[in-house]
Design a protein around this nucleic acid. Structure first.
Lengths: 115, 115
DNA sequence: AATATTAATTACCTTAAGGTAAGTGTCTTA
DNA sequence: TAAGACACTTACCTTAAGGTAATTAATATT
């Protein structure tokens, strides 16, 4: 057994698995990142309409968390009615391939898993 | 914007992102998979000791879910006291690289993120 | 005047995740 | 005879995630 890997996974306070899942393991974060990865730039209501089933509250909460982690950038246009645009940061872009790999793994294997 | 990808991500009832996160997006699943990926075969109490902070209850719940999704295999030895060994299935093995990529992304980026 | 628009915010509620602590069965060992 | 090992199971409780619905500010449109 590889002690190095074990130490990395299990170092309780500094566990990368925990850190990453605590941030994007919620119901909506990954979806928003993938969406912005494809769409480049989207306004609040555009994301809201695309996802369809997300509540306004959870969309703002999700966007704020992603912004706090520097995964998305938020650009406010000082006009009325308000206009706010979102797009991925460099860090968000760097996460994208990992998520897309997960998606394609899911497409390959999820069908066979019974509900 | 790529309509194909969007349709894949957003198809509410059949969304691969949701499917995969619903199954391994919980607090312990990924950790257990990574552990079994390194250790090959582990008994219940070995996993319990390695992770340290997981409760017995959550370990059994986690293992049962992973087994139901055919991500880990459970081998019972009919002896007393009981002996049960766990290891990754082929499907679990196929997920492993994706998770390791996520871990290494986390190692590269999580330090910079403030708590 | 009244209504629509946009991106939130707030109060309230429900559900689910996960923790603690105790108990189970069967055998072995001190 | 009592305790220990092992892999759970059960009852109970707390916390957090996420949902609904109403409200906001400032302006343009009808």
């Amino acid at each position: 057994m590889n002690k190095n890997n074990l130490e990395i996974y299990l170092d309780a306070d500094n566990c990368p698995v925990r850190n990453v899942l605590d941030r994007i393991g919620d119901k909506w974060s990954v979806l928003v990142i993938l969406l912005l990865g494809d769409a480049d730039t989207l306004r609040f209501n555009e994301i809201h309409k695309y996802i369809g089933t997300i509540s306004q509250k959870m969309l703002t909460v999700t966007l704020k968390k992603l912004e706090a982690d520097d995964l998305i950038h938020r650009e406010v246009y000082p006009q009325i009615p308000p206009k706010v645009e979102y797009n991925l940061t460099e860090r968000g872009q760097s996460l994208l391939p990992n998520l897309k790999n997960l998606v394609s793994w899911a497409n390959d294997h999820m069908m066979e898993m019974k509900k």
